[in-house]
Computed example of a mutant assay.
Amino acid sequence: MKDAADELARSFGYEMVDPAEKATKVRQVFDRVAARYDLMNDLMSGGVHRLWKDALVDWLAPRKGLTHLDVAGGTGDVAFRIMDRVGGEAAIAVCDINHAMLEVGRDRAIDRGLVHGLSWVTGDAMALPFKDKSVDSYTIAFGIRNVTHIDRALGEAYRVLKPGGRFLCLEFSRLIIPQLRPIYDQYSLRMIPAMGKLVAGDAESYRYLVESIRRFPDQKTFAGLIGRAGFDLVKLRNLSGGIAAIHSGWRL
């Protein structure tokens, strides 16, 4: 399992890079795609990513008065869902290393009239700018595979959660229906970069995003990494046949 984290630290899609350079390269990708990020998510998934994020928040079952941290959630999709569930009665920090993504999220929040209860923080998942044991719950959606050292990010999630706090991660994963893999591979490896070029004027960024999915550990391996970080009661749920998966853990 340690090998899985080490290999991911060196991989930028299918390219192997110095881990010290990876964060900069990933940040440049999201600088380029920020303006079209949500539109491309809709096009790439046929809107299904919205159902996956709904499922994430369903499993979180947020309560009023919680202190929540959403990491790598710059455009606000998960934070807005949580805020809607609790009727605006929550303190939610959206933390993202990419300032351009946060600007998109802040603009969307203003358009929705959400000016209270949300904070937008530039920060690294591997070195969160939050105190120990300071949040009730932590989510990260489609972000952890872009982190250089996922073991450090998981350790930071554990650090900032209060005892009894909940960790939830939504991420692309491995299909559990072998017959669908050739179709999925053809679509994602060929069609998504072409779509990125047409819609966002950037095929290479979307080629990286597709390749990074292939490099990410499978469901069982990732669950093991979550357990190694100290979390208990680790569970997972496959979505859409394993195209995506939600992993859950508790700091007890």
Rank of each mutant, 00 (worst) to 15 (best):
D3P: 01
G13K: 11
M16V: 15
V17E: 13
D18T: 06
D18E: 13
D18Q: 12
P19W: 00
K25F: 01
D31S: 09
V33F: 03
R36E: 15
D38L: 07
M40L: 14
M40R: 11
M44F: 08
G46Q: 06
G46N: 08
G46Y: 10
V48Q: 10
L51Q: 07
K53G: 05
P62V: 12
K64W: 04
K64Q: 13
H68R: 04
G88P: 15
A91W: 05
I97K: 05
N98G: 10
N98C: 15
H99A: 14
A100S: 13
V104M: 07
G105Y: 00
R108F: 01
A109S: 03
R112Q: 11
L114S: 07
L118P: 06
G123E: 11
A125I: 00
L128D: 12
F130L: 12
K131H: 07
K131S: 14
K131L: 04
D132R: 06
V135H: 07
D136G: 12
S137E: 06
I144S: 15
I150M: 11
A153M: 09
G155V: 03
V160W: 03
L161W: 05
P163R: 14
G165F: 04
L170D: 10
L170N: 10
L170Q: 14
I176A: 10
P178E: 03
I183G: 10
Q186F: 02
Q186R: 13
Y187E: 09
S188C: 13
R190D: 14
K197W: 12
K197D: 12
V199C: 08
A203L: 03
R207M: 04
V210S: 08
I213E: 10
P217N: 14
Q219P: 02
A223S: 14
G224E: 09
L225D: 05
L225T: 13
L236G: 13
L236P: 12
L236W: 11
N238Y: 10
L239A: 07
S240W: 02
R251W: 01
